[in-house]
Design a protein around this nucleic acid. Sequence first.
RNA 1: GGUGCCAUAGCUCAGAUGGUAGAGCAACGGACUGAAAAUCCGUGUGUCCCUAGUUCGAUUCUUGGUGGCACCA
Length: 301
Amino acid sequence: MGRLVVIQGATAAGKSAVAVSLATHYACPVVSCDSRQFYREMTIGTAVPSVDEQQAVAHYFIQDRSINEPLTAGAYEIEALALLDKLFAHHSTVILVGGSGLYADALVYGLDPLPTSEVIRAELNSIYERQGLAPLVEALRMADPVHYSLVDRQNPLRVIRALEVCRASGMPYSNLRTARHATRPFEVVRLAIDMPRQELYNRINGRVDQMIEQGLEDEVRSLIPYRDLSPLRTVGYSEFFDYFDGKISHDTAIDKIKQNTRNYAKRQLTWLRREGDLRYFAPHAVDEIIAWMSSINYGNI
RNA sequence: GGUGCCAUAGCUCAGAUGGUAGAGCAACGGACUGAAAAUCCGUGUGUCCCUAGUUCGAUUCUUGGUGGCACCA
């Protein structure tokens, strides 16, 4: 049975470099679970692996599609599972790396097979825009009292998604949620890259400055026609759109990118904390990671 | 050098005729099963510049410092 090594951690923590080092050591490929590095139109602002890194080891799910075809977590689960099937035919180890916790969990634990409906969601969104959240919350109370009592009723995305599932399936959302972990045809080893908060924030600030030097502003400007697509709701892009709109100054935009990236990193860390026994390593501790991996037995996910 | 004004949270500031203080932003904590770099929720974290007085009690009033700003030299 193959072994999937999952490398997580906050943005700018140095996950990609660790992944390349490990992949070189195990002579294995790297699969990304970064929801913004999927898109070929976004390069500078998403800090995709460098050309050198991509030539050193095979990378998958890196800039392999267009922002016109967004990849949802559910679709990612299916595509990535199919890919792993092929990769494990030739490799005993595959590395999964990326900052999108939901996507990593979709692949590792699986999502319940819930329906989606663009049409229903569009209807719900239009109600939300015209009448606000209250009627949607009330509709959810009628359609699924159980989930109504559990859901964050102030969060439009949660309420709308739950209603979307109810209407598309004809069943209460809560009936379809099992919270069961899927069984996978591979073992999973999870670890995370971490460092002191201040150090992480310094790296983030420095990386944003680098992105500016590399021409992030021009990259974002070239994407103005696509600004409403969901992949462009992204730190580093939204702020420049605000600047182009004259809402904020250039300097403010850059400061906001740094701040919003720090906030994003904090949310990633919060997400990872619920993975109680996650093993943390420093970004340069590749030898330590290799030693740790050879010391653990398969089977304890 | 003189005169005036100012000094309160990480930042910008408000405030109490004397009873140890509060806004915005930041920060921190959390939620999150198909928008997830998204979306949403919660929390004041403080030698009220220092000093000596007055007072039952001083961050608030008074004295003397220190630092900043403005104007005059």
